[in-house]
Simulated assay, not measured.
Amino acid sequence: MQERHYSLRTAAYVLCAAGSLAAGAALFCVRSAHADDTSAAEPAPSVAVQVVPVMRKPVSQLVVAYGVVGTAATNSVTVSLPYVARVTKVLVQPGETVARGAPLFVVQADPGAVIAFTQAQSAATLARGELARTEALFRDGLATQSQLATAQKALDDAQQALAAQKVSGIAAGEKTVASPTAGVVSQLSAAPGDQAQAGTALVQLLGTNTAGARAANVSLGVESADAATIHAGDRVVLHSLSAAQQSVQAQGHIAMVGGAVDAQSQLVNVGANVPLAGAAFLPGTRVRAEIDTQTGTWWAVPRAAVLHDASGQYVYQVMPGNKAHRVHVTVKVEYGATYGVEGALDATRGLIVSGNYELGDGMAVRIAQGGTQ
């Protein structure tokens, strides 16, 4: 009886174990099926990116240069007198802006110069009368052809001498000397009472250019490598180096590019024509100039969009199905944070500017919040 009791109890244990195993197997199958369903429902991995539109437009290579306003020799005008004179009044002062025709100073010609002018007038009058008398004698047969020719030559010589005196502007008494151009008085060498010799510089002016002027009024220095890319007519924008005038700027064009390196500065001299009427750039002001060179129509892309590896430079665009497409590009010019590039870009597809470092060609992407397609 005891043996039979043990047999029944053992059988009960076996049945319980079998039931537990069956239940565990069923539970494992259910969990496995659920795991498979979850795996199948998960989306393919993608990279979050931000995109911007891409288009072709003019982009330039930016060259930065430094220089000084109003120091180019081509824009400097020196005022002097072609005769000896005494300065009686000075009507301007250094730094003063003057208009064309404005009085600069008053002079009185040296008595010797006035006498020379008077003598030239008298000689011309005498030669004119002598020619008239010789012509009358010639008509009466009392003068020869040679005498008539001599009288004519004497009058021509006297008239030329008088014309030279008149060009010099000599006149008896005081004379006001006017400014030959609009500009700024950069140097004043005359003082009341000075005896100025012929040809002596009395005033130096720095001309203020108008929009149509061609002379340079800003002198810049650039590296020789940059100078090779700059040409007359390139756009230039001046900026003040003063912290208080950061917003002040003036726009003009390159007028001249030097053909040699300056021995002192080791830079190439470049002259710019920038209309400065009404601007806060006084002669002698040091400035920073931004010169637009090699202007062309390129694909304008942000610097962040362009990547580089052993195969060269490239960008990514978003193609149908939200796939990244690698496009080979060549950077032509650089303007601040913008590149001008050439390549087989598609203007209808967004250009990836953020997240592109994680991409490979054909990878799935998703537009991050704040990005634009």
Rank of each mutant, 00 (worst) to 15 (best):
A113N: 10
A178D: 06
P283N: 06
G193T: 03
Q313M: 11
F281D: 06
V49R: 12
G258Q: 11
C16A: 09
N217C: 04
H253V: 05
A158G: 12
R139Y: 13
V90D: 07
Y314I: 03
L8T: 11
S60P: 01
L276F: 02
R286V: 09
G173Q: 02
G183F: 06
Q373R: 14
L162H: 09
L91G: 02
L131P: 06
R133P: 00
A280V: 03
G212V: 02
I291F: 01
S7M: 15
P58E: 07
A44W: 06
F281R: 08
L359V: 02
S46R: 14
S168H: 11
G312S: 10
A324E: 09
V114W: 08
Q165S: 14
G233D: 00
G233C: 01
I115T: 14
R133W: 11
S224C: 03
P43E: 07
Q251V: 12
P103K: 08
A26M: 08
A310K: 13
N75D: 00
V64M: 10
D194I: 05
T285E: 08
S146I: 04
G350L: 12
Q195E: 08
E334G: 00
L62A: 05
V301H: 12
T229N: 14
R326I: 02
D37E: 15
S32F: 12
Q119E: 12
D346V: 01
